[in-house]
Design a binder for these strands. Structure first.
Lengths: 126, 126, 126, 126
DNA sequence: GTGGTCTAGACCACT
DNA sequence: GTGGTCTAGACCACG
């Protein structure tokens, strides 16, 4: 486990996104125990306080819950996890489409561009 | 002219993007004179230093050029403007596709999602 | 028997309060035997150490007494129980009035507010 | 300006409450500038990071807003301030009445107790 | 000068 | 061993 950090976004936000993705793609499942703050800090070479901040935010978003003295756990509500996925995808989609429209692209153009981009990626794999 | 500012992005970047878009969609044309810093600052209720910074960056990207004693002008190179458009679109596209893939969406899913989103927008207009 | 735990207060304190209330309202009477630590721990799904701590504190407050080999018992001094009731009520009252005054409420306002709140509760019952 | 700190509650929460009260009683008015983090830290003899934490939370509750590079301001929405007052009073009231009822006090008892407590306070002043 | 973030290291309460 | 809080001190971006 390692993250490539981008200097423009706070580390704690990048870790948040990383964890959210881990949950969405199922590497962390509903109810799973999350590694201890200090453990993650060591693994990611990040200060424990920064990790702590990450999980404070995730807890506020009800993605993670703390059981005192025991540790942190992924929320056990499966529906919450689906919500996050939809929310993150919706945000990506919204930003993309709005941005393209502001650049003057028509809806049909946008579909074409995405299709091409995706097909090229497929070709790369072959 | 007014911008809704987003607290998470530096204001000067938001103004930069705004101006780039104005150029791309043709509200500001190649060679056009750009309003004076003080004027824009008043209009947008922004610290003049911030506007100054905006144009410094735009100049570094060769989108804007200063003619001493005359003011600032949009670059007269049409090709440069096309470059910016492609660059901004490419960035949007890249971030979108990468993000969707990290959420576990397959390429075909992505096309479907975009198509639906765009068609709904079309319906809204009717 | 079950308690809804509030994350902001230590669990052992919440159990302490719960037991004090049980004593005050008479569900546990002076001299009654208190269930064994292990039993309570199972029932409440709590670490036995936490229950242990609860009773340590209750013993220190002389609300509970241990008879070696026999188990733990509610104190047999009725007066002690009245003391606890007054103490808890006084604490509640003090915190409430001080808080309201800090919010700028006058003494007369406080009485009015309490009266209204209580009357509404009565209405709900009808 | 000084706060007496209670060891059982995190400092940042105590400062939060203090600030909320200052706003409610009008010492800080809607739209007012709030002293700089470092300034407050000096005044209260508290680490600036702790003050920072305080305002992060207040901002999340939309009681305070940050204007980048300029400082922090009390929200300019008067209605929000009334909301906070009602919320804080409601919380105090709820905790008090629920607590008293759990101790076995009847509604009429509660009114009587509050009335007496308040009248004694009035006597003290004379 | 303003807030935002991060590191380092410490202490505490809880389980 | 777990998270929660706090201090100290530093650096950065922003206006």
């Amino acid at each position: 486990m390692s993250i490539e950090f981008d200097n423009n976004l706070p580390i704690y936000l990048q870790i948040m996104n990383y964890i959210k993705k881990e949950i969405i793609i199922g590497n962390l499942k509903a109810g799973d125990k999350i590694p201890a703050v200090r453990e993650l800090a060591l693994e990611l070479q990040i200060n424990p306080n920064t990790i702590q901040r990450t999980f404070q935010e995730l807890e506020r978003e009800q993605i993670v819950e703390t059981r005192r003295g025991l540790g942190r756990y992924v929320t056990s509500e499966e529906s919450k996890i689906m919500d996050i996925k939809k929310e993150m995808a919706g945000e990506l989609l919204g930003r993309f489409i709005q941005g393209m429209q502001e650049l003057g692209y028509k809806n049909q153009d946008i579909i074409t561009i995405v299709s091409h981009a995706v097909q090229e990626k497929d070709k790369d794999k072959e």
